[in-house]
Nucleic acid binder design. Structure first.
Lengths: 247, 247
DNA sequence: CGAGCACTTGATCGCTTTCAATAGCTGTGG
DNA sequence: CCACAGCTATTGAAAGCGATCAAGTGCTCG
């Protein structure tokens, strides 16, 4: 169920993730080489992009939309282990099988490369490998932050942590940056939030209601969130209150 | 409190982690360049190697011994986010501050490089960057596996998971590999295990006793563990029972 | 209007935590 | 040699938090 991709995306120069993706450091000539082997794929919300255990023939970047990385136990318990936003990289050069399910949460467009040619490009183009290393180190940091959330925080703190992560990301993307109050749409269902945080969807719902009742957040509909005071939210998350979210 | 380092270690060719560390893919001439800028540091069990937030002037590899990466919240809750074994890399090229505490769990010897020269080496030596990328991707996989443990497994499953991880690692290092029964020493206190798994030390102790009572493990002293049946342990960990631990 | 879905809310259960006491081990000093 | 402190680990009892089971709400879409 591929969605035809707008032709406008075909030019790397106009690409919205040009400066943040794996190609961020490429020189014009390197970019052109990439341009020759790239292709776009689209997936609808809910579609599984890659099945855990399958052989992965391609790697790529999220151009628009959101996807999740999840692990599932035999009895059905599932844990989200990655949240893929525009510019994030999917796939692992130098390894055959996919270790996780990759699922499109919203409609999504990806900029893909067949694995072999990409690996060759990587070997020939240090700028790509350098950028990929940097991105992977950032992901590792994020994963470790997440481990603290999963291992040691209460349900309320977990919710506050997730909200502050999403708010911070929106701030770093949106043109007007980090203002108070902050407003955004949750890209995840209650169930997906639960899988992110190692909770049940009922607990997520309850804690969202509690944060709303206590004035930490405001809700319009189920997904539209307003944070009147970011510092307050950070405190609820159990993070260092000083310094704030501009790190 | 530096421990003087045996001179025997000075030669990369004789180095016990030569083929697994960040230098694994280096050619002889590249290795020689590294040899010129490397130096050894030793730390005693319990010593903090790097404090979270400090500026990090060096990077390096664990040569022998064990260290942990931990994050601590203001109120003292702590979560281990990394377990550093021989050949593992410490430090982050291209970033100033250290995001975690690094603590020596046992006496430890590290092969260090001042950060600047190492970064220059990295830029000039693709083999190092390639290897570091591969190692970082492996760590990321491990962190994500760990996230499933933290988010979705019961206390009993968590303990079983940790034991199977340690057993597997020992098997991959020891000459006779994976035999049943498997025997090893726990490199961690009950408290460190608790910090690893997001539990309290009392729960760790209780579940260790329970696994012992049920015959999944045998204990001599507090730290010496025998696993009569690895498959049984894997089942208790909630992992895929088939395929086993030779992946 | 009714089916289906995402979400909310309530009541109860049970696992893990918390608080507390005890055991076992090691090293120190009388 | 024994007493004692200090540490790690074990075990018990009680409390609390999040899970589970269950009902109900609000919305969209046919």
């Amino acid at each position: 169920m591929q969605i035809p991709t707008p032709h406008a995306l075909a030019k790397c120069d106009d690409c919205p993730i040009r400066h943040r993706a794996v190609c961020a450091r490429c020189e014009p000539n390197e970019l052109q080489s990439l341009e020759e082997i790239k292709y776009y794929r689209s997936f609808e919300a809910g579609q599984t992009i890659i099945w855990s255990g399958d052989k992965m023939g391609f790697v790529g970047s999220v151009v628009s939309g959101i996807a999740t990385l999840t692990q599932t136990m035999e009895d059905g318990r599932t844990q989200m282990v990655g949240l893929l936003l525009p510019s994030d990289f999917v796939g692992r050069p130098g390894r055959e099988g996919a270790p996780y399910d990759v699922v499109a949460t919203t409609d999504i467009v990806m900029c893909c490369f067949r694995k072999k040619p990409f690996e060759q490009m990587m070997a020939a183009t240090p700028h790509i490998a350098q950028r990929l290393l940097q991105m992977t180190l950032d992901e590792l940091d994020a994963a470790r932050e997440w481990m603290l959330v999963l291992g040691r925080k209460t349900a309320r703190e977990k919710i506050a942590s997730l909200l502050s992560i999403i708010a911070r990301r929106d701030a770093s993307v949106s043109p007007n940056g980090a203002q108070s109050p902050m407003v955004f749409d949750l890209p995840l269902t209650r169930e997906a939030m639960a899988d992110y945080l190692g909770l049940t969807l009922e607990t997520v719902s309850r804690q969202m209601s509690a944060l709303k009742k206590d004035g930490v957040i405001r809700l319009e509909g189920k997904r539209h969130v307003t944070v009147p005071d970011m510092c307050r939210l950070m405190e609820e998350a159990g993070d260092d209150s000083d310094g704030g979210f501009l790190v």
